[in-house]
Nucleic acid binder design. Sequence first.
DNA 1: TCATTTATCTGACTTTAGTCAGGTATTTAT
DNA 2: ATAAATACCTGACTAAAGTCAGATAAATGA
Lengths: 291, 291
Amino acid sequence: MNQDQINRFRNFSRSVAVEVGALEDSFLNRGRPLGSARVLNAIGLGHENVSDLRTYLKLDTGLLSRLLRGLETEGLIETKPNPVDRRSRITKLTPKGDQEFDVYETLSNERAANILDRHKNARHLLDAMDVVTIALSREDITFEEVQYTSEIVAKCLSAFAAELSKRLNSGFDLENSGDPELSQMQHPHGTFVVAKLGDMPLGCVGIKGNGTSVAEVKRMWIAPAARGLGLARRLMVTAEDAARALSITTLRLDTNRILFEAVSLYQNMGWLEIDRFNDDPYPDIFFEKKL
Amino acid sequence: MNQDQINRFRNFSRSVAVEVGALEDSFLNRGRPLGSARVLNAIGLGHENVSDLRTYLKLDTGLLSRLLRGLETEGLIETKPNPVDRRSRITKLTPKGDQEFDVYETLSNERAANILDRHKNARHLLDAMDVVTIALSREDITFEEVQYTSEIVAKCLSAFAAELSKRLNSGFDLENSGDPELSQMQHPHGTFVVAKLGDMPLGCVGIKGNGTSVAEVKRMWIAPAARGLGLARRLMVTAEDAARALSITTLRLDTNRILFEAVSLYQNMGWLEIDRFNDDPYPDIFFEKKL
DNA sequence: TCATTTATCTGACTTTAGTCAGGTATTTAT
DNA sequence: ATAAATACCTGACTAAAGTCAGATAAATGA
């Protein structure tokens, strides 16, 4: 990494630090110290029990306790013991607290909208922000098996289809591409794995099974903003593990040489090229892997 | 601006706030309060006199004074009166202070390198960071007339040429493109205007004059990361003002329809299409504007 | 059951940050 | 020459943030 690149990174850090500081100043204008405001916001964002708040905000138990007491006497929150474990406690915003939380939310949203609005093409800026967000939050990316019918899968598949349409100049239609039955993409026959950051979908891959020991890998996709971080490999590892757990011993897949990143990943991960095994219009290269 | 976009912005804010916080924690591990560390770093970055420090760090005079006293007793800085105005004072890092500043610099650089290194394609991430940096620092962008021989102009011109090569599929060579003499691009005949953020070049435009009242606009370019912010218009306004100041009454320019953003900007700013006025190979559309 | 652990709270601190009213030395304006 | 303005400093504060050693109540484990 050369110094010029590091300087660009640090210019970035400086500019966002200024922006963060300005937002905090606007919070302080509400007349409440930042510590209390942070706690109030964390509660509003759904961090309801005290120990969750403590880890989320990295606060000392004594300090947090006092801040909660403060918000309580302001009438912004109510605290009651957790019925499941009466040692721990659950906080909740009162209607007044809800109102105050909304004020903070509005301040944040307005700052965001302001910066986005002065861009002729906010999409360009947001794409850049996604790239940064994902790079900085790399540790928080999760790989989960999800229901094929869930909303996040729909998001992934439409992004997947849109990208293939663009890259395969022939266009692309999911339905002409060995489109699986629901039952083939969920337990016990198959599964669907999604890479996520919070609720932002970063990538996906499906295992399309039929109860035999041979199954197919379908719909492998990584969001453009998430590329270059090695997520595809981790996604494939997760999928292969899931296949093994379903007693699948042979995986096959089809793809297109235009998707060169995918092709070289498969080659890299021990997939072997095999003969065409279907008549789908889009693929022109086929792979197999014994698990 | 819809809520989904605002949420993406706010996810971004959250992730960078975490990163900023982590860097500050690593600073605190040096055993010095953040306030002092900030002052030390500001001095190391070249903010030498006390009033400059005060505005840069937005600190109260009393507070800054005390922080300086603290760094002095630590033996990290020395302060002496400004010989030009003995009311004001100039601070300087001692050798020990220099060392300590380097430690902070190393901490920052290492964090940056760490995040960049885990990216297969750091250029992609850095480009995204530039887009964000420029969007957030929009108010700090300056438009300056500079010497045609200066380093920043060389940077702009090579980026300009690289982009034209890519977009005009015929390729592009500065020398075949009415390449001006040095004297034509500087006072009193012409000038060269650069848009900058700090020392990052964001765009440029030249006025190529020959002592008559007619001059030519050349080399208009905006960095990809800086597009969509309306900089081209501000750049052109600056250039037209500079031309007026040089007693130029008619400006002409040539460009290519492929550069559609530029063409529509000219049309928008009151330029009128005229007949071809040179034999250069690249342009296919010509404009004129009376000042 | 009873010692131990866990989750939170309280009190008594210290440190850091921030504010503000003078005060001194120097420069500027008239 | 002298009043006003400027640049910085000091002292005397307040507020906020952070620390830490108990204390209490509830849950857990042998």
